[in-house]
Computed example of a mutant assay.
Amino acid sequence: MSRQPEAPPHTVRRTELPGAVDDRLYFAQVREDPELEIAAFAGHGDGPIAVVGSAGCTALSLLAAGATEVVAVDVNRTQNHLVEFKAAAISQLEPATALGLLGGSAMVAAARRSAYAQVRGVLTPGARAYWDAHPQAIASGVLQAGVTERLMRLIARTLRLVHPRRTGRLLALRTLDEQREFYRREWDTVGWRLLFGVLCNRLVLRRTYDERFFAHVENPSYARHFRQVAEHTLTGLDIDGNYFLQLLLTGGYQQARPPYLAGPVPVDRLHLVDGTFTGYLRTRPDASMAGFALSNICEWLSPAEVDELFAEIVRTARPGARLVFRNFVGWTEVPPRWRDAVREDRARGEELMRTDRSLCQRRFAICEVTP
C-alpha cells in the first residue's frame, strides 16, 4: 500500500478562540508606521508581544526587527487570513516575487496566480479556502484588497485631479526645505483643502466602515484632523523614505518598503489568534507577557470593555512590560484605576508620533506596566 505524501507544514501556528467572526477585509495594509512600535519595544522584545493582527504589517515588522515571539490577535478571521498569506509569501518566495504577489510592485495577474499556487499549500485550511474564493484579490495584489484601500484609491484618484501634474514632482523632492516650499507655493490649494472636506469627513468614514468602529469616538472634525496630519507628513517628514505616500500615489513601493518586505522575517515566531484581545489575554498565565500593541482598538470598545482589557494587561504583564496604543480619530486614556500600574510616558509618545509617516494617525501612547 503506497503512502500518501505528507502535507507541508503550515507557515504559522494558528489558534481559534470563542467570539471570532468572519467579516469583511477592512485593512490590507496597516495604516500605522511600525517604526514607532519597533522603537517602543527596543530592549523589550525578549518575550511574547501581543499585537492587534489587522493586516499584519506591525506584527511581521516587529519580527523583522528582532522580536522573539509575536502573537497577532484579531477577532476577524479574515484579517488573519491576510496575515497568514503575507507570512507565507515572504517565507516561501524570493523577495521580488513575494513583493509582486502582494502587490507592492508590478506583476501580471497570471504571474500572481502562479506565485499563489506556490504558497497555497502551506496555508491553513481556512485561509486557503478564503483565498481560493477570492482570485481577483490575488490577481490584483492583496495590498489593495481591503475596504480601506478602496477609499484610499478614491482619494488618490481625486488627488490626481486636484494636482494633475504635481504628484510626480512631489515624490521627486529630496529635502525638507524643498518639500516645505513646494507645499506652500504649489500644493496647498483650495482644491487640496476641499478634498478632505469631501472625502475624509465623518459621513464618508461611517459609510465606509462598520458603525461600531466609531461608536465610542468623539471628534469634532475628521477632515481637519486628516488635513493637519497630511500637512505635517508632507512638510515635516522625509518624502523619499515614505512608503505609505509612495504606495498611495503610485500604486507600488518605490525607494522604500515596510520592514517586513525589506529583509528576512522569522515567521516561525509568529502565532495567529482568532479572537478578541481580552479573550486571548485571559488564556495567558500571570506575568507572562513582555509587551502589548493595541493599535486603536480602544476606540471600538466601551469604557467597561477598555477597563476589562487593561485589567488583563496588568495581570499578564511582566514587571516593566511595554504597552503601546494608538488613536486614529478618537482619544484614549489609561483607565483611572489602572494608572498606578500603567504609567504613560506622554513626552516619548508625542516625540514618536511626530515621526509617523502613515498619513492617518492622531496619537501614539507608550506605557510601562508594573503590576
Rank of each mutant, 00 (worst) to 15 (best):
R212D: 14
S302A: 14
I90F: 06
R165K: 08
H44V: 05
D238S: 14
P18H: 02
V217F: 11
R343P: 06
P259E: 01
D46F: 00
T316G: 02
I49F: 11
Q144L: 12
R269H: 15
P48C: 01
F182A: 04
P48L: 02
W192C: 04
A64M: 04
A347R: 14
P164Y: 12
R257E: 04
P135C: 11
N296A: 14
A230I: 03
A156R: 02
N76M: 09
T148Y: 12
G197Q: 04
S288G: 07
D177I: 10
V142S: 03
Q361E: 12
M107Q: 05
E350F: 08
H271W: 05
G19F: 11
S54P: 12
L270A: 04
P9W: 08
L173N: 01
A89F: 07
Q79P: 06
A39Q: 12
P266F: 09
R180L: 06
F182E: 01
R112F: 07
H271A: 06
S54T: 15
L36E: 01
R185W: 07
L154P: 05
M289A: 05
A304I: 06
A347S: 13
D238Y: 09
F292E: 00
K86G: 04
T68F: 04
I90C: 11
R348H: 14
P259H: 06
A98P: 02
T124D: 08
T68N: 12
R165N: 12
L245W: 00
V217E: 13
E350D: 15
R113K: 12
A230D: 00
L195E: 05
R362Q: 14
E69A: 09
P335I: 07
A65G: 07
V73M: 08
Y280H: 15
R212E: 13
